[in-house]
Structures are given as C-alpha cells and as structure tokens.
Amino acid sequence: MKLTGNTVFITGGGSGIGRALAEALHRLGNKVIIAGRRRHRLDEAIAANPGMEAIELDITDPASIERAAATLIADHPELNVLINNAGIMEPDTVAGKIDEALLTSTISTNLLGPIRMTSALIEHLKTKHNGIVAYTSSVVAFVPLAVTGVYSSTKAALHSYALSQRFMLRHTGVRVIEIAPPWVRTELMNSEEAELAMPLDEFIAETMAILGTDADENVVEAAKPFRANVGPGEHDFVNGFNEQALALFGGG
C-alpha cells in the first residue's frame, strides 16, 4: 500500500488502534476521515489533528452505514482507502447461556458492520487507482481466546471473509488487507495498563512499516506465532480450492 496521497476512511477512529492509525496516516499527508458513535471522541481526535475530518456512524445500523457511504462519496470522491476498524470485545460465557444483547451487538459490530461498510463503498473503490479495503481482525482469529468466544468467532469469520473477498477482487484494482493485532494497550478489555500487552505506539510503528509493503496480511512480530498456528500454505490452499470451485460453479 502506498502511504501517501490517499483519502482514507477509518471506522472506530475515535480511540485506540483506529485513532492511532488515523493519526499516523494523517502525519504522512493523507486526507483522513474518521467515524464512530462517540461524538466527543471524534471531536477530540480532529481537534488534535487539524485537517482531519469526522462523521458520526453507528456501524450496527445499515441505514447509518448507507448514509455515511453516500456522504463520503459526495464529499470525498477521491476516497480510495477504507479501513474497517470498529470493534467491541467483552467477556462471555460460551460454557453456559450467552447473553443475547452481547451476542447481537458483538456480531453486528465486528462482522456485519465491516461487511456492510465495504459493500456500501466497494463499487466506488473499484473506480480508484490503488483502492484498498482493510480489516482489523485479531490474533484470536487464528487462536481463539475462550473467555471471549463470541468476539474470537467474529474475528475468525472476518478473516475468512477477507480471504474470500481478496480472491474475488484479484482481477480488480482493489487490494484487501487484513491487520491482525496481538494484545495491544487499548481500551478493549481495559488493557491500557496491561504490562504484557504491546504498547500502542510500538504496534502502530511496526504496522505502518508493513502497510508500506505489498503484504496482504499485516502481522507484527508479536502476532506471528498465532498466525503460524493455522499451518503453512493457507493462501495457496484457499486460492487453489476456489479456482476449482469456479471451474465447477462459475462466477468471479
């Protein structure tokens, strides 16, 4: 991914990894628009970064997503990068009865939201040179954290979706990138002071260095043991499987 000259839209950009990514890209001279539900967080971010813009977005609401997409295309027709970063993480009880509100909100935010957001912008992104769709998944997409089983499942599903979309967009100008953070010091699970978590500034520095390459997956050193758990050759196997499927069923 080229690191300058982009117009970038980042969901969940008011705090944590989303804000840190937004600020890193902003410092490089990209036009950055962030989105989230907490207006005060958005206002704090844009006040600290003159030139950055923000729009309110409820990633769980399809109508809010469609409104945001229409606004972005109208106000920023040069938009070429979408970073789906919004997410929530709560402990759950997979060994017992799952709280319905937790289940619905986690799946709506972490899985349905990114799919819907990308769907709303994908035809626009196809018209751009250097189009990018990025998803922030997690190392728990590869090695689930049992105390957050629903969250882990949404990240595994997001990884699977990114693999499918990357394959289906292989002949277009749009690249699909997956960012898979390890445990990072953010608000998720009250991890800001966790000694074993990766400092946010270190994660962003390493992530930005990888974003500047042609890598489809952004996996920092601390995350590599988790990614390796699924075994070697996953991409070749996935692509070969899908080439055979296309021969059988057509499409793509």
Rank of each mutant, 00 (worst) to 15 (best):
T93R: 15
T93S: 13
L112V: 06
K128R: 15
H40W: 10
H76D: 04
T60F: 00
L163Q: 15
I98W: 10
P144F: 05
A157V: 02
L82R: 02
E78H: 11
N30D: 10
L82P: 05
P77K: 13
L112P: 00
E100A: 14
M117A: 08
E90H: 15
N130P: 00
L163S: 12
A162H: 01
T60I: 02
K31I: 02
I65F: 05
V133N: 05
L57W: 07
A63R: 11
G131A: 12
G51N: 03
R37A: 04
G96T: 07
G51L: 01
T109M: 09
Y151F: 12
D99Q: 09
D61T: 07
G36D: 01
G36W: 04
A157H: 05
G87N: 03
I55A: 01
E56W: 00
A63F: 02
A63T: 10
I122Y: 05
S153E: 02
L158G: 05
P91Y: 11
K97W: 08
G96A: 15
M168P: 00
N85T: 12
K126I: 04
G36R: 09
V94I: 15
L42M: 04
T60E: 10
K128L: 02
P114W: 01
L158N: 06
T104A: 12
I115E: 04
A45E: 09
A162W: 00
N85P: 10
H159N: 14
G36H: 07
D61I: 05
K128M: 13
L163E: 15
S164G: 14
P144I: 01
H76E: 06
S137R: 03
V147M: 14
N84K: 13
N49R: 02
L112W: 06
I115K: 05
A74R: 15
A70K: 15
S137W: 01
F167N: 03
L79E: 10
A162T: 00
K155M: 09
M52S: 05
P77Y: 12
A35Q: 12
T136E: 08
K155D: 01
V143I: 15
N110Q: 11
H129G: 11
L121S: 09
S153N: 11
I65Q: 09
V140G: 01
P91E: 12
L163Y: 12
E56V: 08
S153P: 03
G96N: 10
T104K: 11
M89F: 13
A101C: 07
N85H: 11
R27A: 13
G131C: 06
L72H: 06
S153K: 00
T106G: 06
I34L: 05
L42E: 02
T109R: 09
M168E: 14
A157Q: 05
D92N: 15
S64I: 03
A69R: 08
A134M: 08
L125W: 04
A120N: 09
I88D: 06
G131S: 05
L57N: 08
L103R: 07
R27T: 08
E90S: 13
I115S: 06
G113I: 03
P62T: 10
I115N: 07
R27W: 00
G96I: 05
V32E: 02
T148V: 15
H124Y: 06
N130D: 15
T118E: 07
R39I: 11
P62V: 09
A45M: 10
